[in-house]
Design a protein around this nucleic acid. Structure first.
Lengths: 220, 220
DNA sequence: GACTGTGAAGTAGTTCACAGCT
DNA sequence: AGCTGTGAACTACTTCACAGTC
């Protein structure tokens, strides 16, 4: 621990991965330093926000100069806890599950697919991307073998809570839920939700209330 | 028009589709009225928030009784502008694009797939779900024929801005961007972003900073 | 001169607590 | 009595503006 006890606001945490992505791009372009102004431009926010966000991680900039890209990148990875790859187990081999399993964007960015499981006997044994669909009964074993793992729920809504319970029982401590349903987990488990149709409905709102509507909650 | 001029906060707008989903479920179960308390429980928020959120739409509740499910459902659809289906055009027929095109959750919830287009000649003509991949040059025609349309960007990051520009030029006024890149559009166009790897990284943060971390924070 | 880091001011969102209707 | 609708209090987040450092 480096003694930075300050609690990082949720809003800041949600932006850190965006900065990470940009820093990776800058590093690939062999750019050595970057100003808060430039970072802000690339992230679609303003410079004050970038500086405040980064200040929660520590004092990594140099006044009059900017931030050293490689050093900030290292610290950002440290802060986000993405210093090692973290495998992902997808539950549900329907359209969405197969899609997510095939999506290269996960493995490319540090989240390789460990397995796909499904409760439906008919789907077990079929191939999805590089892996073969396994039965739900293998879940605990798969989690044990790959710990730590992030569980991804890609089932229909009605079984999402059941699946979440099984993931937690199997020892998963972070869950990403794509099912359109509320799931609750013990307080020590991290949970996030992505509902694709919901995003379209939000767009729909701003489209029908056009004339000054920021569908993107203030970042451009 | 019912004269409700009050601007609805972005945070409220982001929750309305969740209420909508719950109201649809309640209506299917033939439940006639619902209290803010019960709605809150189903949505995973607190009752005061539900009442305040709904009050932005109008005074649709009955004191001492609660909300009439069907009436509130009607008003909610009205407010969100989802009274008619709105077709979706997916740009990019890679893994993610094909996945989204196959994903039944869109059409089931009022966003039928109108078309998939791709810049790669090799992909044009192949089948994705019910549709055949069309060339980018068909975009303007497809948009004209289906107006209003929501455009979905499911391409690699580097071409996302180019695609967004083409969508806007073709007459699309709402865009959902799945590419990991910043996209900017004219102010009258609605834009939202979903980055799947980014969600996993946020989870990763809360997982490595376990002990009191709310990875979910009701927004998105 | 350039650019960070941060208190202070400003804005948005949440929760409280209760008046007011049924 | 039960439950909504809403000002008022509170909390979280953003932006300003400038002192401090290179």
């Amino acid at each position: 621990m480096d003694g930075h006890a300050r609690r990082i606001p949720d809003a800041t945490v949600a932006r850190l991965p965006e900065y990470l992505r940009i820093l990776i791009e800058l590093a690939e372009q062999r750019i050595g330093t970057v100003s808060s102004e430039r970072l802000a431009e690339l992230a679609g926010v303003n410079a004050a926000k970038v500086r405040k966000d980064l200040s929660y991680l520590g004092t990594y900039g140099t006044r009059g100069v900017g931030y050293d890209v490689d050093y900030l990148l290292f610290q950002m990875r440290q802060a986000l806890g993405v210093t090692r790859d973290c495998p992902v187990v997808v539950v549900g081999a329907g359209n969405l599950g197969r899609a997510l399993a095939n999506y290269a964007g996960f493995s490319d960015r540090g989240f390789p697919l460990a397995a796909v499981v499904d409760a439906d006997e008919a789907k077990v044994g079929t191939n999805v991307g590089d892996v073969t669909v396994r039965p739900m009964s293998d879940l605990a074993e798969l989690v044990r073998a790959n710990q730590p793992v992030i569980g991804v729920i890609a089932t229909p809504g009605p079984v999402a809570q059941l699946v979440a319970d099984q993931l937690v029982a199997a020892g998963v401590t972070a869950i990403l839920n794509f099912a359109p349903a509320l799931v609750s987990v013990p307080p020590n488990i991290s949970l996030r939700k992505v509902d694709l149709a919901l995003e379209l409905q939000i767009l729909s709102f701003y489209q029908s209330h056009r004339e000054s509507g920021s569908a993107s909650r203030g970042w451009t």
